[in-house]
Design a protein around this nucleic acid. Structure first.
Lengths: 153, 153
DNA sequence: GGATTTTATTTCAAGTATAAATTATATAAA
DNA sequence: TTTATATAATTTATACTTGAAATAAAATCC
């Protein structure tokens, strides 16, 4: 399974591994930068920002499960983050008419305001961090990444 | 700072944000797959694999701090992961001649063997996960990601 | 209608992660 | 020397993260 003729272990396999390592290193590097900005400028964390961001894109609110799927993190994880956001007054939980299992999570006014302030600067940070990349170059990478995500068994 | 004419908030800035979101989502998706494979096939985790992998590439061993920099995670984090690997017998800590603060971490024979078994399959998983990508397409993305990493203030 | 299964969420234990504080050692400067 | 500063690693407190088990409510089956 790893000789020069096997399905893996050949040049293409190694190249794909290089791509994965590059993907991972670059993402971690940018994440570390963004986390640092979040921490120093807003005393908050990336996961909290991600939750607010997802809720901002869904004005009507999201169920816990939808939130978990959007963020691609586990159910139990979201419970904890939302809990802290609720106690900070940025987010509220609402009962769902007709399904007493479900819980709708929504930005409060304070949460929407806090997010708006952060979002503009966040875009700015990303813009600076990716300053070396032009529109078309970005599009090329976006297309490749999309094709990776869509190619799931 | 976010009108259509500002340095951010324009089309290019939005495109870079899209690129970042794509980067993050794709990396998380692949990471989740790999974590699942690691867990079911080897009862281990990605961070442990990453440590073994770094040590395998440095036969002479690495200092805790070097390990932390290689993996781009915090110092205290490495302490914990190495601790568990030591108690599993996969890694050993050695005193450093001439510097009593430092600790050299190295694979044991068992650790090297365990890693070798995992590494081949890991490459295979990545190969399958990125099956949609050809050599040149991968290279294009690698180049872009490298230019991002190198463009640091 | 009642039993079964599925769905939505929380709880739990273990592990991963950070930043800040601490310990111990090394190096430089006075 | 003595003092000051820097470096290597750990410890601590808190937060994030997962997978599995537990709860509770809804939907489906018979």
């Amino acid at each position: 399974m790893s000789g020069p003729d096997g399905k893996a272990g050949n040049g293409l396999s190694k190249q794909r591994l290089r791509l994965w390592v590059n993907l991972l290193r670059t993402t971690r590097l940018i994440e570390a930068d963004l986390r640092e900005e979040m921490r120093t400028a807003y005393r908050t964390t990336l996961p909290r920002f991600d939750v607010l961001s997802a809720l901002e894109r869904h004005a009507g609110g999201l169920l816990m499960g939808e939130l978990s799927r959007h963020l691609m993190v586990s159910n139990g994880n979201v419970t904890g983050i939302v809990e802290r956001l609720v106690s900070d007054g940025l987010v509220e939980r609402l009962a769902v008419e007709g399904d007493r299992r479900a819980i709708l999570v929504r930005l409060t006014q304070a949460g929407a305001a806090a997010f708006a302030a952060m979002a503009a600067e966040h875009e700015d940070w990303v813009d600076r961090r990716l300053a070396a990349i032009g529109h078309d170059e970005a599009q090329t990478v976006i297309d490749t990444l999309s094709s990776i995500r869509e190619d799931r068994p």
